[in-house]
Design a protein around this nucleic acid. Structure first.
Lengths: 208, 208, 208, 208
DNA sequence: AATGAATGAGGCTTCATTCAT
DNA sequence: GATGAATGAAGCCTCATTCAT
């Protein structure tokens, strides 16, 4: 997981072409890792996916380990960014619950295989462990904070500790995200169902 | 994750699948696969884990692929068997919910890494896909059936479709199983929390 | 090619059963070696062909090398014995030519693949080189002697040195033996053709 | 058996099949296969013979099987090309017989071990079977055609069917080629002897 | 920037062979 | 006599990685 910072550190070379190739490599890497897992993925496969030769790969990344690390970071950033839902601060509990659920399910479905891999590789790499920790805990903690605030304000009456509820809703969402990943058409129904249960766990009537 | 002597004590094991050495190999394989993933796991590592030479492995399994398939099947069997909770037919909804939740969380925590791998490898192997399908769907369907029966009998008033509730509870449980896997002491609290939310989603007061 | 002389040396054990198994092993070995060549043949394949386990093979032979040596010797013996045609001393040149040609073609066709292997392995093993030498040269020398005798007696008028004629006829026969090996029905025609040419080379009218 | 630089001097070799290294590998493969047979030959040995590492071998060939196939094709091409004797269309029967015999014996002696292997491996590979068929039958058929033509023109009076004579001469030549392979000095005598017998079988007086 | 060539390390698998039973 | 189990050695092949161009 050495970070020798090559080209992508160079100030001069942030031109379109290099970035483009690097991006293509990351995309290819995502596809290959997702399909084969870390150990069975090959640098050759990734390079080919980006239209490069094996050696070309090393112009942009120092090693297989490094692409994975960069990819993990990108996944975390994308995943977390996707949950910065605008208007999440509304006072409308139902709206917030629905919006954050939708965001979470969408993001999870989109990144599912990579998230699994990050979790697995986190066992052997401290840096990845940190990434995984953020992916895993940040959304939960944020939701827990929100629940706690509302509970303390007397707006809702959750059926369990805020953290437990947040975790539970996360778990549900993951489960439904899997369905969505397999069949995108299931998205709407999934969000509706999860939101309904979410609200129930918050002690709020789903329909106003 | 350790296999505690099944029928292998018998000298005249019916078939080869229950030899002591074979069992040790399966246990070692489980450990290695769980730790490294399918691609990074090595036959050498598995053999060593069972106290055998590399060649010795091939006395019992034809290939790395085969151990994994057998292991997947064993995992499915163990995982599903662990949920045949005695007394699950009681009329006491709370008891059943608690018992099945406890069983599921325990089983999931015990088999977590292998389950993840089976899911991943299912992408490339029809047989594994079938195994994964059973692991994934059988508990959910069973729970859904139970919920539907009680709902139709007017005993409970679930907040969503039985299948959705079942899936949601499965998702929660998985999430908490992860905590339990990391810290076994969390088991009791996890079961309590999940059970409480489960009952809520069924429209039942947690405490009688 | 070590000859540790086990059972087959023991006086006591020349009973039917042991000999039978050994014979079955040799037959199996012949089939396997012929089909796969020395390097690709496996002791397992040979043992299986004789209905034995891998370990069982070693009851009768000390090594793969040894079966091959024994088999080579057997092949040589069979091949040479097949050419001890009765009545080969007749004064009838045509009859002798025909008989010895028939014998040679038959024997060669029957042993073709093994003979090839012996030739090849002879490159690396002195003992096999000696076996091959006998297989290769004995029939030729015998034929050459016969030709020389007749020539000196004025009975025939060969078109080249006896040794060359003998060698040439051997070569023809081998070529036709190949056809016969592929299609046994070709045997008669092959013998007729070769005999006719043989006689011509001896300066004898084929038909009296 | 050594390959002496073909078109590989050119930097811009048309296709990969003529790279210097590839040629060296084929030469090494020829030597190793000839010495050890297909099964006992090792990729390591071939690579080493070409001054490459084991992995280097795979830059040029996909597998041991593939080198052998390519080598077989090359052997066939060389072997057949060597028989395109210039002036073979002369009206001088004796000259043609001598020239084609010399060409055949030379070519056979040069390629003997490989030809044997191709024959053997042809048992398991359809592609090789086709190669072997060409090696085996083309020269024979060509000679048979020539004989038939001359016979029909009344120029010669072969002692047997053209095809049989052709095959017989092929067989003789192979036999003598073996001598030549063992002792190159025997070449001249071998060609003389075979030619003499060839002409006899054609019903032509060897010396005009 | 990009690549073809090359390689050391290592992975999967086979195999001849041994040995306790 | 026969075998199941076990193994060291070795074979084929892949792969991450380097380097000259």
């Amino acid at each position: 997981m050495t970070r020798t910072g090559r080209a992508w550190t160079t100030r001069t070379a942030r031109d379109r072409s290099e970035t483009a190739v690097r991006g293509r490599l990351l995309d290819a890497a995502e596809e290959v890792f997702a399909r084969l897992g870390y150990g069975s993925a090959t640098v050759a496969g990734i390079a080919a996916g980006a239209g490069l030769s094996r050696a070309g790969f090393y112009v942009y990344f120092a090693s297989k380990e490094e692409v994975f690390a960069v990819l993990a970071a990108r996944t975390r950033d994308d995943f977390l960014a996707a949950q910065d839902v605008p208007g999440v601060d509304t006072a409308d509990v139902r709206a917030v619950a629905r919006a954050s659920t939708a965001a979470f399910v969408t993001a999870y479905a989109a990144h599912l295989p990579l998230l699994r891999l990050v979790e697995q590789q986190a066992q052997h790499d401290a840096e990845l462990a940190a990434v995984w920790e953020e992916i895993q805990e940040r959304p939960v903690r944020r939701a827990a904070r929100w629940i706690r605030r509302l509970r303390d304000a007397g707006t809702i009456r959750p059926v369990a500790e805020p953290l437990a509820v947040a975790r539970a809703v996360g778990g549900m969402s993951v489960q439904f995200a899997r369905l969505v990943a397999a069949d995108p058409a299931a998205h709407e129904g999934a969000v509706r169902d999860v939101t309904a249960m979410y609200l129930h766990l918050l002690g709020v009537e789903p329909t106003p």
